[in-house]
Amino acid sequence: MKIKIPEIGGKGDEIVLTAWHMSAGAHVREGEPLAEVVTDKASFDIECPCDGTLTKVLKKQGDVLKINEVIAEISCSNKQRKE
């Protein structure tokens, strides 16, 4: 499952990846904070959408991102996953 930057508003805002809370290969649980992104005036936690394994980390701390840009991939193990 691809993890994308959600539409957090402010379409012209620069979005900066400020922290990873998980590393590639980590077992993750639905709802756990995965990464933090920051715009001009807001910080926002991106969460794991499902239980599983963080298979790919595609962006690094400090990268400037766009809405819907893929930052990671998770292999989900549970049937129900949060979109």
């Binding site: 539409e7 957090i8 508003g9 402010g10 805002d13 926002f44």
Partner: peptide, 8 residues
């Protein structure tokens, strides 16, 4: 609508 810019 989960819009942070609107909230600000």
């Amino acid at each position: 609508g989960r819009d942070i810019a609107t909230y600000i």
